[in-house]
Computed example of a mutant assay.
Amino acid sequence: MLSPPASVTEETIRRTIAASWSSPVRHLSHLPWGFGAHHWRATLEDGRDLFVTLDALAPRHTRASLEAAYAGAAALAAAGLAAVCAPLPARSGRYTVELAGGALSATPWLAGRSPTEAEAQAAPHVERVVAAVRDLHRAAPPPGLPEWAPRVPGDFADGLRARTAGAWDAGPQAEEARAAIAARLGRIAEWTERYHGLAASARARRGTWVPTHGEPHHANQVVTDQGLRLVDWESLALAPPERDFADLLAAGAGDRLRARPAMAELFALDWCLSEIAEYADWFAAPHTGTEDDLMALEGLHEELAGPRPQLSR
């Protein structure tokens, strides 16, 4: 997120890090990165640098499911998957710490950088990501790994129709968001019906599901001197492999991935519909027109244009 959270003070973050990861914090800086979670760089008195994340829970997670995802990532790293940059256990032995209605976690700070979108499309980099994703998909699933499930219900469009029937006045972007959603309800209903049909087909092949990262796009990649690392494992789940293919297919790697078009379509719809659901919640709730709100409104309009094609031409 671009702005620090209003729900918790910096001092509370400092105290929680010190208590949970066994060292006072020498320096803490909020990082205006990503969307949906808050991030900080923490330099500890014991010399470690940590990448600290405060994840929201609903609608994507419960405390148990987020803990299971991070514990699964740690298990994959311990099993030898070099590309997995997993969270560090807290003093409790768990990988998440309850805080401000969400969950705090910490991973080692990586000396490297994330590629730009353009750099992530270059053939040598794409091959590194393909190799990392293949290794992940071949790994034995850790016990207790969350399983993918549809993220919006079959009556999603009906629910939106009821919610958007009257004006929204919760903030400066509310009415624009409501009108944009209302104008696309017919298409959203079509997308949702197709989505649940494809999800049923995926569940019928549950025995072929593999560990998937969920969002291995360029912003969740870090190139280091030791190689490519994948970060942000909150979406780790057992699922069809196509869940991880979106950006790779767009970069022209389809011939190496053997993606099934129907499953690629499923996860294009999965992303689009779940984003629309989260943006509807965002703008129906109080907001003030921050940079995050403006970015969210842009994202809503983008998703309402429809799922992006997943198979390169």
Rank of each mutant, 00 (worst) to 15 (best):
R161D: 00
T192M: 12
F156Q: 05
A204Q: 13
E291A: 15
T16H: 00
V126Q: 03
H39V: 15
P4I: 11
R63Q: 12
R138Q: 12
R113Q: 06
A259D: 00
A149H: 11
D169N: 07
T107M: 09
H38Y: 15
F156V: 08
P241K: 14
A118W: 01
R187K: 08
S3Q: 14
R184P: 04
H196W: 11
L311R: 03
W282E: 02
P146N: 09
L266M: 12
A42H: 09
I276D: 02
L230V: 09
D292R: 08
H61C: 01
E67Y: 03
R151W: 08
P4T: 11
A122V: 05
I13G: 04
A284H: 13
W148Q: 02
P5F: 09
I17K: 00
L31H: 03
A131F: 00
T212D: 05
S65Q: 05
A165G: 03
L273Y: 01
Y279S: 08
A277Q: 11
G112C: 13
E193F: 01
A111Q: 14
W191Y: 12
P146I: 04
R15T: 10
T12A: 15
R138P: 02
R26A: 14
A174N: 05
E303N: 15
N220F: 06
E11W: 13
R203A: 15
G36L: 13
W21R: 08
A189G: 14
E176H: 14
T116A: 11
L273C: 00
P108I: 03
G252V: 03
T96Y: 06
A78Q: 15
L81C: 08
M263I: 04
G299V: 04
G144C: 14
G101Q: 14
A64L: 15
A165H: 07
T107F: 02
Q221L: 06
G306K: 10
A82H: 11
D270K: 12
E275P: 02
T43G: 15
E147W: 09
A167V: 14
S312D: 14
A268H: 03
W271M: 13
A149P: 04
T53W: 00
A202Y: 03
V126S: 07
E119N: 10
L269E: 07
V126T: 14
E127N: 13
I276K: 05
F267P: 09
A285P: 00
S312E: 14
P5G: 08
I13K: 02
E10L: 14
P241C: 11
R313T: 08
